[in-house]
Design a protein around this nucleic acid. Structure first.
Lengths: 341, 341
DNA sequence: TTGTAAGCGTTATCAG
DNA sequence: CTGATAACGCTTACAA
């Protein structure tokens, strides 16, 4: 039952099934041009020996790795698990393996990620982070590897882009706050060096202008997209001479930090101040009070990223495309009427 | 600057550096037996061509994949990201690549995970989930692949185990509740078919016995380690004729569900009822009130899992070992004195 | 220190 | 429908 030959390979299977290695290969790859009887003998041998073809040899022989790269910032950031899962499930369903790498927000590490992708000869890469650098893009392009980015803005040959429609959700949020009587609205931005954070910020500014609300620099504070950063930034925001009656945060973690800061100062949400997050991570339903936030479906991003890649991979057209993903306001309990002064 | 030959390989590099392919290989692998001058020529060529060795060919040629498998249940379960990250960081630092797979709590999918591992010829596997099945273990054993499990209990040749010391933390929690005057302590278990859930449950029972507290079946309800399950189970627990004054949950998600149920019933935590979670996921600091919980360091689990594998991989000894990971109570604000009746 | 050449386990082409 | 056999790109004795 156990007791095993040194190296189980296609030849042993062929021998056992009394066919050539070519026939084993054809059978296992379902190429169809094998007589059913023969195929059965092959499969019996495969099962009996518990044979699993060597993926490296397969890649080398066929010239196809059947691997897709997925680059994210940090799996511990609650934004990513859903995205990873949906991308992976879609890819697996199409017979692709995933090479998942984390940049940890570090350009050096991003370079290593890219290198690992190249060494494994991935057939396409989804870059769901903004640490992407130019040199890496070139190396991928030189090798004709399709890429899909998140919010990069560029669409070229073999480069597609998932474009999150920030303005829509943010406009909804500002309109909602405006209707509740809020006129002084603060913003807790993400780190200035982060592309998506900049886009969120400018969508916010545009929203204010639409309502003819003057933009006051002191009402915009920079966080780091983490709880601590949001907490610190919110403290600054609350310390100004005329603090805002409502705060919009660049992501939910920032909002949660703000929630903490607000409560530390003895203020209540939403009675004293309204708070709106961004992303709608699981966590935002669980805070006290549950967070009003702008939803961005990570599942949708992951699925679209995969399909964008698949299209580039199978497509006759090399042209990249833009895939929009909508955002919209989800009202929960962290927002309410502006307190009359 | 761009414009690229069809297939960049070691031979092109050798040609450019005016050496043999063997020398390129030796240089890039840092085997040391290359004259510095020669090495420089090689590296120059590598850089100039932007050469990245083909990992598949490498595996095939050397007979070593340099890949470690990591099997988890579900990356969206907040228990796992920390574990994955610490395992991965440790592995990367030692030059190993990771093949991460999710079982989604599904035995069929677990089988596919195992198959993918086998095809990729991973050098070791960390099975951090309990869907592990016997057949898979045998296939791995047949191929002499080291395995490290989480809470499996078995330690054999080439099989190590990370043993979480549940009893310690649970005893601490019960002692703590006991000192606060609690005598009726309920338990929200995990799914009965989950190994680690069963271990947690029996550690709880043992803790009760130590304090001579009678075990009442109606004070033990089964959840599913998710929020909804905890919520439903807690409702059952609160509906009995003499409800408990304190509840211990099998994991934090369950406790969070319980928190919800308690509040839905107009009760307050900890004034009316005390609540203790398990795991100490990030989230447990963010609930209202912050959750008293039993900490289990996922980072430690991930690191120990990797080192267990490394030991098995490098070790002269084939013998598996047991690696304990301690748990301990973290008191926050969801626990207080038992309400006098 | 360097080069030559035989694998490694597949796939794919080409005959039969 | 099936079988030989030449790639695929690297590593690693073995020779020089």
């Amino acid at each position: 039952m156990s007791g095993f030959e040194r190296n189980l390979n296609i030849e042993l299977v062929a021998k056992k099934a009394k066919v050539s290695t070519a026939t084993v290969s054809r059978t296992m790859n379902g190429l169809g041009n094998v007589r059913p009887e023969t195929a059965k003998r092959v499969w019996d041998a495969v099962r009996a020996l518990q044979y699993h073809p060597n993926a490296s040899a397969r890649s080398l022989g066929s010239g196809r790795s059947r691997i897709l790269g997925l680059i994210i910032s940090d799996i511990c950031n609650p934004f990513f698990p859903d995205l990873v899962k949906s991308f992976e499930d879609a890819a697996l369903a199409c017979g692709y393996e995933i090479l998942l790498t984390n940049t940890n927000y570090d350009p050096d590490r991003m370079a290593r990620c890219a290198q690992r992708m190249l060494e494994r000869r991935v057939e396409g890469v989804a870059v769901m982070t903004s640490e992407m650098d130019q040199r890496m893009m070139e190396e991928l392009a030189n090798r004709s590897i399709p890429v899909v980015c998140l919010d990069s803005g560029v669409v070229e040959n073999r480069i597609s882009n998932i474009r999150v429609q920030y303005p829509h959700g943010i406009a909804e949020a500002i309109q909602y706050l405006y209707d509740l009587g809020h006129r002084r609205i603060g913003f807790l931005s993400g780190p200035a060096n982060l592309g998506s954070a900049r886009v969120r910020r400018s969508a916010f500014l545009k929203g204010l202008r639409k309502h003819h609300i003057a933009i006051e620099p002191e009402l915009i504070q920079e966080g780091n997209h983490k709880i601590e950063g949001g907490e610190a930034a919110a403290h600054k925001l609350l310390a100004v001479s005329r603090p805002p009656t409502a705060i919009l945060a660049s992501n939910d973690l920032t909002a949660i930090g703000a929630l903490r800061a607000i409560q530390q100062r003895g203020l209540r949400v939403p009675d004293d101040i309204s708070l709106v997050g961004f992303d709608d991570i699981e966590l935002s339903q669980l805070t006290g009070p549950p967070l009003t936030t702008i939803q961005l479906s990570r599942t949708e991003v992951g699925q679209k990223a995969f399909h964008a890649l698949l299209t580039l991979l199978q497509g006759k057209s090399q042209r990249g495309e833009e895939y929009p993903v909508q955002t919209h306001l989800v009202v929960r309990q962290s927002t309410g009427h502006a307190r009359s002064l």
